[in-house]
Amino acid sequence: MNPLDLAGPQFLLFYTFFAAVVIAGLVFWRRRAELSNSSPKIDLSDPYLIAYLRGGEKEVLRVATVTLIDRGLLVRTGRQIQRAENASPDSVRRPIEQALLKKYARGGEVSWMFEDNGLSKACEPYDATLRRARLLPDEYVNQRRLVRLVIASFVLCGVGFTKVIIALDAGRSNVGFLIVLMIASLVVATAVSFPRLTESGEAMIEDVQSLYSGLRDRAGLLNPGGAGIEPMMLAAVFGVGALAGPSFSFANGLFPDQKKRTGGSCGSGDGGCGSSGSSCSSGSSCGSSCGGGCGGGCGGCGG
């Protein structure tokens, strides 16, 4: 049976299903094309690079702000922050931190940072690094995405317009719903064709969260005060909402929406949280252990 012979409502149903299949195919095609077999080499110890990968410059600014407050270089009063009296942009080495300390020399609303071009500029190196590694789409990836979208659009419009012509030929003019459906399917196809990250980028976030899952397990034990990089990395990898304990409660006060995104158990809107413990993770070279760890009554590791 030729679906183009279907009556109006039935054809609309068919077209909805058809568009869903085309869009699903488009997503599948993009994912296959963008997922590299080999992982790129990037600096996994750079918290701001990871934060940028996970959430763009806004995420970098959130992590930097929380870090600077934790280190006592920014002072928070409600939703306002200001550079500490004894702090200077020269006392930090990362450009984004220097830019934030300059920006808040006289204090201001936290939200102002998200509209500052100078701060955006400080994030550009992260953007360039991630595009080179094709974790964010570079020009080539965007061209391929466009080609796939054009093909999908051609298919969607081809079927739709054919039906419109058939309908008009038959003297029917009730093609409005079909045209709306075509436009809607094109909008959805465009949206799914150009996500912020490449598939390799999505995978890299999951990988980094898996590699750093030990940090999340110890979130409540991390020391505040900027003594170590661990809280900063935890915030970079899992979001500032992952910082736990009263010492970091200011982070949730500053960015209350982040707690929902990264807090709680495992549900993260940022690409999953990896797994915090492998299926049989012994984390030890001691063999399968004697009912609870090596070095005990079973004769140590031996390995």
């Binding site: 992982s39 080499k41 990037i42 990988d207 898996s210 990896g274 797994s275 049989c280 993770s281 012994s282």
Partner: peptide, 22 residues
């Protein structure tokens, strides 16, 4: 430790591959 990854889900094995890339 290889045995930790024998039955690990695919994302964890891929994370190990990412580690090996570094």
């Amino acid at each position: 430790i290889a045995d930790d990854y024998f039955r690990a889900p695919r994302p964890e094995r891929r994370a190990l591959r990412t580690l090996a890339a570094q």
